[in-house]
Design a protein around this nucleic acid. Structure first.
Length: 144
DNA sequence: CCCTCGCATGGTA
DNA sequence: ATACCATGCGAGG
């Protein structure tokens, strides 16, 4: 998992209002055994907790695939609802507060769905993803 | 060919 | 049993 940064810009999941650059005390806080971080986008004062983290499978770490399987419960709880099996653009924050643009979709599965983030190539290279690593998605919000 | 896409399958919890 | 998800695998480009 990425190490906490002390000079990041972070947005919380609910804050859609743009570029109100309010300076909070910077830095990470430990809460419920997981890293959390103050929202820096607006004055809401919310604490952003990583939405999920997972141990990367060999497939998750495969550069040729460059996509990440999202645990279903997390996908349905925190990601935008999907009206069909089409990918939608989505922004996510990594645990350093850096923003990335991916695509979110599901695959129809036998009587269910599998959720994936696609287009992770640059991210995977940047994070040096390896199978067995644990990485976390800090926040996610739909593109405007 | 070889790669990507879109699911299907099957191991595992 | 039943659901989830890691990966297999065929079709299409």
């Amino acid at each position: 998992m990425a190490s906490p940064s002390s000079s990041t810009t972070t947005f919380c999941f609910q804050c859609e209002d743009s570029s109100n650059s309010v300076t909070f005390r910077n830095g990470w806080r430990l809460r419920s055994g997981k890293f959390a971080q103050l929202c820096h986008r607006c004055a809401c004062g919310r604490v952003v907790t990583p939405l999920f983290q997972k141990s990367l499978s060999a497939s998750d770490a495969d550069l040729a695939l460059s996509r990440l399987v999202i645990p279903k419960k997390c996908a349905e709880a925190y990601f935008p609802p999907l009206s069909g099996p089409h990918k939608i653009p989505i922004n996510i924050l990594d645990t350093d507060g850096k923003e990335w643009n991916f695509h979110f979709r599901f695959w129809p599965n036998s009587r269910s769905k599998m959720y994936v983030l696609e287009g992770l190539r640059d991210y995977m290279v940047s994070k040096k993803w390896q199978a067995g690593d644990v990485d976390a998605i800090a926040s996610v919000y739909a593109s405007p």
